[in-house]
Design a protein around this nucleic acid. Structure first.
Length: 876
RNA sequence: GGUUUCAUAGCUCAGCUGGUUCAGAGCACCUGCCUUACAAGCAGGGGGUCCUAGGUUCGAAUCCUAGUGGGACCA
């Protein structure tokens, strides 16, 4: 006996294993087939599966499974990226537990530990994806730090450097004094804190007793001041234009400059300019050619350039200088002030804006094709609203800071001579050869060359991903890259549209002069019920594996997709997974029903044949619908179409029609047709719900060893028989009316009702008579040419129906509903007439539309006629 | 602050090229059912000023303008 409820756990494990054993996800170039490829957005190697991954990878799996069933050579390449900062932090933490400090070990030793960590803990996420049902070609799993991808990154750097695209320069970066590295903006968290605003007096040179007062939150940086700046339109300070002031305590003279950048009504309207320690001041400094005085070292301690407080931590120095300024009378007042402090995502340290020497990639020229080919839709973004965002970013690109002060990553292939000369080459040996040959430095040895200690930004690996996973950088003419590239669809979140997607497009054109993918599907962000982004730190995200345990992978997958339109965030609620699970259960029970039937060779009942024809028409209709949805990446809508087809049409209607009475057999023709229909439904659903559909598909018929629904044919639909669809619609409307009547009169479903029909088209009902009887439980269906006295009545289309009941009929109530219906139809008729009477409508609207309106009018008129007759009768 | 995007039932959202009296789905709610596949179910039902104000149009939830309120990105 099969279980009454669907139990996914064993079934899922069993089939996933089966798919792997039979290599159903494996792909290799096949010239007889159309290629279809997706590269996974490589998850962080330290990561674990979260809701965003679930959504994202479910969508990819839907796309790839559908393509596979459509006979394409489908290849989904999995892998992870090395995530320099995150991984390095994990490794440092692991070492700390073992009592080892990073600073006490060599780079080589550290990397050995890092690889050890990666082998042991990294890539858990890939195994988790298997639980979700992801049909990746696992033999192709790549990692951005594996030798060949590492080499690709190094080659990329060397090539771009040789083209003059990469340079070294001083920039203001987010400096983490604890992690001792530059951070990208995404690795910085802004926190709102209460700070103090200090008002300080700067004595004016040559005017004894006169001061300019500035307001600052960082008094310890006054030693790095290069100027005082006021707004030229600020009349309070006009007298001081061109003068100088002394820095308090330090007594260094700095000029008073003017710039409209200064906000007149903030603080005193007088700004201290500290180019080395503030981004805006830095830019102001460049504009006014001010000196840059960097008073902090890499640890955030004051250096000798500060002159005062040398060797003190920035926060200690702040406390001390405030005290000293106060004692010396330079501190006018202090105010509470709400300000934003930037902190490091990894170490929590307060970020220091810091000037440092970094490597940059020039973006202006290299990004041009990437902008152009998205704007002209060679690469399509779904939803297209992101084109705007994309353009505004690409039209204002900043050079890309690609160096990171870390060890875990691809070490920058730049080698320095003792005098600081830079040689960029793939290896030290090559750098040496270059130095000897190009610079005539024949006496040089490898010992004289020092490699840049920094590594490259992780994105500098992942921007090559669609090419490098096929070894297309190192080996540009290999078979895989020629066959699978460009890939077809990329599925990712809009939050990395710029950091990753745009850069992959850039790399695609730079390396292969071709787009990396044709479509970019941007998923929404998964949020909790309160609309907050799900994150580990908030603890508001359910564990995806728990969800799968609870609702089954199919349930979670479909649940997530029920409400996941492209690009729109989705507010996650477990209820959605519950709905998905219920859907599985519904399918399961439909299977249980069919499975329990006994088959005889008896002749087919006509109504069963009609039902089969009708349902096949519905399938064809739905297939056309979902293909249209897919062509627009409306993955969620396609699922909903299938959901309705299966639940409402297949289970509630089709199966109810053909279902034999208890313990009665079913005729073979209907049974066979039903099995065929069931198979089609499973195939259509398979991309969304791979496990349950496999389980049932395997059970529906005898299958060959190793055969799988994974490789079954995705139904292609066919001509839609709209006639039968229309006639069934009328019939279902009638059935609903009868049921409604039954419900309203509180009659048991077991009581069969006598139905009389007044129609001029008996054929309309005659051939579906058996179906009406079955669905609505009517006992006899008779045709009448006149009203039936003492019966309940209603109107469907232009026909009138009567149900004779025992006991009193509430004429008033009948009259009221009929009256309401009449009013509605009169109103409807009026609006249609108005439309048709309008010459401009008839002249301007499409002819088929006008024709439709005429038809509507005719329908309304006949219905009104029937209703009026009914009302007249009731009033008697 | 700049750019952009959204506002539809109690909740989450569909509504695609303006054209059924177009206002729809799921959940929630109400009524009745343990009807031999399924109570994770069945049959019904109620519920909306389509944010506001203008405009375009024969016709607007849909297009335009402004406002209000939320989100995102950039600074």
């Amino acid at each position: 006996m099969i279980s009454k409820t669907y139990a996914p756990q064993d079934i899922e494990a069993k089939w996933y294993q089966y798919w792997l054993e039979n290599k159903h996800f494996a792909s290799k170039p096949n010239p007889d087939k159309e290629p279809y490829s997706i590269v996974i957005p490589p998850p962080n190697v330290t990561g674990v599966l979260h809701m965003g991954h679930m959504l994202n990878n479910t969508i990819q799996d839907v796309l790839i499974r559908k393509a596979r069933m459509e006979g394409k050579e489908a290849c989904w390449v999995p892998g992870t990226d090395h995530a320099s900062i995150a991984t390095e932090a994990k490794v440092v933490a692991m070492l700390k537990e073992r009592g080892i400090e990073k600073k006490d070990i060599s780079r080589e030793e550290f990397l050995k530990y890092a690889h050890e960590w990666k082998d042991k803990y990294g890539g858990i996420i890939l195994d988790q994806l298997k639980k979700l049902g992801a049909s990746c070609d696992w033999d192709r799993t790549r990692f951005t730090m594996e030798p060949s991808l590492y080499e690709a990154v190094i080659d990329t750097f060397v090539r771009l450097y040789n083209k003059g695209q990469i340079y070294r320069g001083v920039r203001m970066v987010n400096w983490d004094p604890l992690g001792k590295t530059a951070l990208s903006d995404e690795e910085v968290i802004e926190k709102e804190v209460m700070a103090k605003l200090y008002y300080l007096q700067y004595p004016i040179v040559g005017s004894e007793g006169e001061f300019l007062t500035i307001a600052t939150t960082r008094p310890e940086t006054i030693m790095a001041d290069s100027a005082i700046c006021v707004n030229p339109n600020d009349e309070r300070y006009t007298a001081y234009h061109g003068k100088s002031v002394f820095i308090p305590l330090l007594n260094r003279e700095i000029p008073v400059i003017t710039d409209e950048y200064v906000t007149m009504d903030f603080g005193t309207g007088c700004l201290k300019v500290t180019p080395a320690h503030d981004l805006n001041d830095y830019e102001l400094g460049i504009k006014h050619k001010l000196p840059v005085i960097d008073i902090l070292d890499d640890n955030g301690f004051l250096n000798e350039k500060a002159v005062l407080y040398v060797g003190q931590d920035r926060f200690a120095a702040r406390r001390n200088i405030v005290k000293d300024l106060e004692e010396a009378g330079f501190l006018v007042k202090m105010e509470e002030y709400k300000s934003i402090v930037k902190t490091s995502e990894r170490t929590g340290a307060v970020i220091e804006p810091k000037l440092s020497l970094q490597w940059f990639l020039k973006m202006e020229d290299i990004s041009k094709p990437a902008l152009e080919n998205v704007m002209n839709d060679n690469i399509k973004l779904y939803p297209s609203k992101f084109k705007n965002t994309y353009r505004s970013w690409m039209e204002n690109v900043h050079d890309w800071c690609i160096s990171r002060q870390l060890w875990w990553g691809q070490q920058i292939p730049a080698f320095y001579l003792q005098d600081g000369t830079v040689i960029v080459a793939k290896t030290k040996r090559e750098a040496l050869r270059k130095a000897q040959h190009e610079m005539q430095l024949f006496a040089l040895t490898e010992e004289d060359l020092t490699q840049d200690p920094d590594v490259l930004d992780t994105w500098f690996s992942s921007w090559l991903w669609p090419i490098s996973v096929f070894d297309g950088i190192e080996n540009p003419d290999n078979e895989d890259i020629k066959y699978y590239y460009p890939t077809n669809d990329l599925v990712t979140g809009p939050d990395i549209l710029f950091f990753w997607v745009a850069r992959m497009i850039i790399a695609g054109y730079e390396w292969r002069d071709e787009l990396p993918f044709r479509n970019v599907y941007l998923t929404g962000i998964v949020r909790d019920k309160q609309g907050r982004k799900m994150s580990k730190s908030l603890g508001n995200s359910p564990d995806p594996l728990d969800l799968i345990e609870k609702f089954g992978a199919d349930g979670v997958r479909s649940g997530l997709l029920f409400s996941a339109p492209a690009g729109n965030d989705l507010l996650f609620d477990e209820k959605m997974c519950e709905q998905g699970r219920n859907f599985c259960n519904k399918i399961w029970n439909a299977y249980r029903l069919v499975e329990g039937w006994t088959v005889t060779e008896q002749a087919t009942i006509e109504s069963n044949q009609l039902a089969v024809d009708w349902f096949n028409a519905r399938i064809n209709q739905t297939v056309a619908e979902i293909q249209d949805h897919f062509s627009k990446f409306r993955i969620s809508d396609a699922l909903l179409s299938l959901y309705n087809l299966v639940w409402d049409d297949f289970c509630s209607k089709y199966l109810e029609i053909i279902k034999p009475a208890f313990e009665q057999p079913i005729d073979k023709a209907t049974f066979d047709a039903t099995i065929e229909i069931f198979e089609k439904l499973m195939s259509l659903l398979h991309p969304y719900m791979p496990f349950i559909t496999e389980e049932i598909w395997q059970a529906l018929a005898q299958r060959n060893e190793g055969e799988s629904i994974c490789r079954a044919t995705f139904p292609t639909g066919g001509e839609v028989n709209s006639e039968i669809l229309a006639s069934f619609d009328v019939m279902f409307e009638l059935v609903s009316k009868i049921r409604e009547t039954r419900n309203a009169k509180q009659l048991s479903p077991k009581v069969a009702l006598p139905l009389a029909i007044k129609t001029d088209n008996q054929a309309r009902y005659e051939n579906v008579k058996a179906i009406i009887e079955k669905l609505a439980n009517t006992e006899t269906i008779s045709y009448v040419s006149d009203k039936v006295d003492g019966a309940l009545s209603f109107v469907v289309k232009s026909d009138e129906f009567f149900i004779t009941l025992e006991g009193e009929i509430d004429v008033e109530a009948e009259l009221e509903t009929a009256q309401k219906d009449l009013e509605y139809n009169l109103g409807f008729k009026k609006s249609v007439e108005a439309k048709l009477a309008n010459e401009r409508f008839v002249a301007n609207a499409k002819p088929e539309l006008v024709e439709k309106e005429r038809q509507k009018l005719a329908d309304a008129e006949s219905k009104i006629k029937a209703l009026e007759e009914m009302i007249a009768r009731l009033k008697k």
